[in-house]
Structure formats: structure tokens, C-alpha cells
Nucleic acid binder design. Structure first.
Lengths: 219, 219
DNA sequence: CACTGCTCATGACGTTTGTCATGAGCAGTG
DNA sequence: CACTGCTCATGACAAACGTCATGAGCAGTG
């Protein structure tokens, strides 16, 4: 029922002698395999490589030189954006796009800065994903409207580099002393950064500040 | 390599006139659709319903009366375990199983207590998932070995009811005063509970305590 | 060059936590 | 019934934390 039949519309991109080569990177076997199966139904697409981690995705990309790399945002080793950044320099001809489960606004900015040309949540249908892959391959960009709206409403991070850095070190609930050591800063400085970051974010303490910054993709 | 070839052993369940009816619930369209496509390849399985949220899963189950409900752990509305609990009473003939992305040990216990008969991470292959669906339908249980090992090593929660309760209220970084108010306790009592919980868990402060308790599924 | 903003630091202050001792009331168990 | 363990509370003390004022060095901008 879910698979509407327009199987007849084959080779819409015209380059029938050279199908669009896709790399699939996602740490969840089940999803990756399922995705590969669905994309295989599109006859102008061919999945030439699969990867389950960031580094593996990179290696596979270099080995198989796909046209488009579809990267999961959260993967062990290196996340999708990091992989995209590496690919940009090491395999410039390869377009990159990110798929994500729970899209935080900030990641979109990071992704676009990394040269990613597509950014979609996993709530899209496979049919649509295939379309977007073609769009991206054609050199255009595609960003999920809802994700884009979120990113705009979340706005830019008001945090300075160090503030964000220190806040991130505070993420696991470590005491100031430990943060100071890990950041090679004095405890006083750490407290100052934490304090200003929290007040900028509008949080009462650093822990809620961390949470809010996470939600807005500022860390 | 992972797919050992026993394709020839078809119809192993014998009931060829009555294929195994499956309900699929996952909030991610892409994954759900892909999964449905993959399961459709197994000729003794048929996906009779799909749902994108907890309540929808419940409604769909009651409407289509599947043999097995495959539920994602994290869904909007009500999580997989809650749906399983409801199904247990409202549709006793339906076996339930949970698939999860990032399996926390504690969920397994909750799931088993809710009468769930299968618990697998999304890292399994579709072939294996199909096998497990059959296993579950046959009345047996299947729990991913790695997840089971994690659950065992994480052990039982050492926290008392109130300790866990207060810890949960502390989850979003709220100050003690707010926790006390929300729990209708004195601030001193809250601090005591927080303190004892943290020391039981082995954390230096309540924030890491919350994090660790979360990881172990104790909250 | 003056100006602004980020970085890093110190010292001081009051508040919030974590920790400990102590005790009362109230289940459930042997 | 004695015992144990959970619940809730209070008070007190030290340590950790948040906040503010202040200042030096250093990059980038107009």
C-alpha cells in the first residue's frame, strides 16, 4: 500500500548509462539495510557502499567514490557532519547529505557550514529521500522546511567560543575543578564563563544551561 | 556472510494459509517504510498496519488485531513499553516485541515486566528480525544477548522509591528548592535523598548521579 | 589609532549544596 | 514483639558554586 506504483517512470535523470552512485552510512544495520533495499527500487540509484561508523564511511567513500553520501548524524567514531567535512576536502566531487532522527537546530548550521547540501529528518518517506538525493546530486540544496524553521527560531548562539567550550565540559556534571583542569583554565575563569553562559541562555544554573544549549544545538 | 542460507526452509511454521500478521510502530517514516518493505520480502509475514506514535499503535492494533506488534521504544505519545502494557490487557492474543536504537539496560526489565517477548537493538539485520518475529509468535522469548548482558551487569537499582523519585525531579538541573516544592518535601530531606542516592550510585554530585542512573535505566 | 569584544585572571561575597548526626513515625518480617 | 528499613524532618558545618568588580593582554574593525 505504501509503495505507490510509478515504476514505469524510469531513468528520469536521463543518464542511464551511469546510474547515481550512493554511499549509505548509518550505525543501525536494520535501518541501513532497509534503506538500501528501498533505494534499490529506484532504478536510477545504486547503493555502492554501506558503512556503520564515521571512519568507515570515510574509508568506504574513498574506496568507492560515490556521487552522493547519505550520512546519519549520530554515528560512532565521527558524526555525519565531521565525515562531511573530511569528504569535502578528500573527495570534492562527492555531494553530502545528512539524515537525522531527532534534528537539533544547531546541527543544521554546522552541517551547512561543512558543505552539506541536504538535511532531512528520518520522518520523510523513502520516495522523497530518493528525490532529494537526485536534487542534491544535481547540485541543488534541500533542507527540510520544518528543520529550517526550527533553526531560524532557535537563532544564533549568543555564546563565545570559550563559553561553549566550557559549557560542553560541564555537560556530564563535572565539578568546576575538573572542568578547569581539563580546559587548562583557572577555576575562577571557568566559573565566570559558566556564569555568563548561563545568564545569556537564561538558565538558573549551568546544568539547565547545558540542557538548553543542547536543545538549541549550541553545543 | 551474516545471512546463512536457509531460504529453502520455507513455511517452517506450517500455517501457509494464514500468514503471520505484523503491526509496525515507529515514529520515523523512513525507517518504518523501509522495514515494512524488507519484511514484505519474507513470504510468511505480512505487515497489516503501521503507526507513528504510541496511541496510534494502540488504535491500529485494536483495529487490525495483528499476531505480533513490533514497537519502537521511543515514540511520541507513549513509548513502546507503555503500548505493550496496554496491549497486554486489551489484546491478549497479540505478542509484543520492542526494537530500540540505543538500548538502555533498565528498559529491558520494564519491557519484560510488561509482558514483552522480544527485545532487540536496531543493529540486527532484517533477516534476523524476521526470524525473531517468528520466534516471538511461536510463544518463545528472544532478548538480544548483548542487551541482556548489559542489563545483568547494570544490576538492580539500589535506590529506594523516593530516592529515585527525587533524582528524577533533579534531572533537568532544577535547584533543590524547586525539587522540594514539586515533591512536597522539605529542602533538607531532598538534599538527604540526593546525597544518599549519589553515594549509592558512586557519583560525586547529583547531576552525574542522574546521568549514571539514566544510563543504567534506574530512573 | 581608538574602540570594541574576547580571553584569562584574581579576590571577595553571599548563596546553594553535600554531608553528617540525630530522631520520630510507620510499614513489613521473623 | 523486637528488628530492620524506608520516610521525613531538623540543625549545623564545610565545600562548592554563582555573581560582581576589576584589570591586563590581544585580535579585529572602522
Amino acid at each position: 500500500m505504501t509503495t505507490e506504483g510509478n515504476m514505469t517512470t524510469e531513468g528520469s535523470e536521463g543518464l542511464e548509462g551511469r546510474p547515481l552512485r550512493v554511499l549509505l552510512a548509518d550505525d543501525e544495520h536494520l535501518i541501513r539495510g532497509a534503506l538500501a533495499a528501498l533505494l534499490a527500487l529506484e532504478d536510477d540509484l545504486v547503493v555502492v557502499a554501506e558503512a556503520a561508523s564515521g571512519p568507515e564511511a570515510l574509508a568506504m567513500a574513498l574506496a568507492h567514490r560515490p556521487d552522493v553520501a547519505v550520512l546519519d548524524l549520530q554515528m560512532p567514531g565521527a558524526d555525519g557532519v565531521k565525515v562531511a567535512t573530511s569528504l569535502r576536502s578528500e573527495l570534492p566531487g562527492c555531494r553530502t547529505m545528512i539524515v537525522t532522527s531527532h534534528g537539533r537546530p544547531g546541527h543544521l548550521k554546522r552541517a551547512l557550514a561543512a558543505g552539506v547540501r541536504g538535511f532531512v529528518p528520518k520522518t520523510v518517506s523513502a520516495r522523497r529521500l530518493a528525490e532529494i538525493i537526485r536534487t542534491v546530486h544535481a547540485g541543488n540544496r534541500y533542507v527540510d522546511p520544518e528543520l529550517a524553521a526550527d533553526a531560524i527560531s532557535a537563532g544564533d548562539s549568543p555564546l563565545t567560543v570559550r563559553e561553549a567550550e566550557v559549557l560542553e565540559l560541564a555537560a556530564d556534571g563535572a565539578p568546576v575543578a575538573e572542568i578547569a583542569e581539563r580546559a587548562s583554565l583557572s577555576q575562577g575563569t571557568v566559573r565566570n564563563y559558566l556564569s555568563s553562559a548561563a545568564s545569556k541562555i537564561g538558565a538558573e544554573n549551568r546544568h539547565t544551561a547545558v540542557r538548553l544549549a543542547r536543545e538549541r544545538g549550541w553545543v
